[in-house]
Simulated scan of single mutants.
Amino acid sequence: MANVMKPSASPLTTAEIAALALSLAHLGSGPQANTARSGLRHAFEHMQLDDEVIATTLSTLTDPMPAPVADRARTIANAITSQLVVRLHYRDVSGRITVRDVDPVTCMVHRDYWYLVGMCRLRRGIRAFRFDRIVATEPTFLPAQPHTADHFLPFQGRRRAMRNERVA
């Protein structure tokens, strides 16, 4: 039986890539996880992305997370799937730890870091929380407000603005 490759009707969205990569990132390093990561790398080879994006994010997307971070990532992924609020113990850049209830929307990689993107109930606004600054996660039974992931990716606006400046 021959392998047949059909051209994709539409490329993966940023949210789809993030969901696939997050699922792989917290799988560990077993044979299935390694094969799945290889598949994601292969998918990237066939996408039209600029070299800078590939160079700075591909290894972050496809490398296993350290075990404690992977445990927190599982809690976050479950909250996204279940559409439940997740409670974060978050250390900001100054070292202060706050406890925040977040309506999780999606996860993404920007440069070398994983982020949870969601509506922070404490700050009453969209926030991106770096995984390596999340000290602990707690599942809750509070229903999260539904949000569309494509409108919640904080770095997209900057990229679009930069492209428009280059064109002008």
Rank of each mutant, 00 (worst) to 15 (best):
M1R: 08
A2E: 15
A2P: 15
N3D: 14
N3E: 15
N3W: 11
M5C: 05
M5A: 12
S10F: 08
P11G: 04
A19T: 09
A19R: 11
A19N: 02
L22W: 11
L27F: 07
G28A: 06
G30Y: 01
P31A: 12
A33I: 07
A36L: 15
R37Y: 11
S38A: 15
G39E: 13
G39Q: 09
R41P: 01
H42R: 08
F44Y: 15
E45P: 01
E45R: 09
E45G: 13
E45A: 13
E45F: 05
Q48T: 08
L49G: 04
V53A: 09
I54H: 01
I54F: 04
A55F: 10
T56N: 07
T57M: 12
L61P: 09
T62M: 07
M65N: 13
P66F: 07
P66E: 15
A70N: 02
R72V: 00
R72S: 05
A73R: 00
A73T: 03
A73D: 04
R74H: 02
T75F: 12
T75A: 13
T75D: 14
A77L: 00
A79H: 09
I80T: 05
T81V: 06
T81K: 03
S82A: 13
S82G: 07
Q83I: 01
L84C: 10
L84G: 03
V85R: 06
H89T: 10
D103H: 10
D103R: 01
P104D: 01
M108Y: 00
V109R: 01
H110P: 00
R111C: 01
R111L: 02
D112A: 08
Y113F: 08
Y115D: 07
Y115I: 00
L116P: 05
G118F: 08
G118E: 12
G118P: 14
M119I: 09
L122C: 03
R123Q: 08
R124I: 03
G125Q: 06
R130G: 01
R130D: 07
D132H: 06
D132F: 11
D132T: 03
V135P: 08
T137P: 09
T137M: 06
P139M: 10
F141T: 12
A144L: 06
Q145S: 06
H147M: 03
H147V: 00
T148G: 00
A149L: 03
A149K: 00
D150G: 10
H151T: 05
Q156P: 03
Q156I: 05
Q156R: 12
G157K: 03
G157S: 09
G157W: 14
R158T: 07
R160E: 15
M162Q: 14
M162W: 10
R163S: 11
R163F: 15
R163I: 13
R163L: 14
E165S: 05
E165D: 10
V167Q: 07
V167A: 13
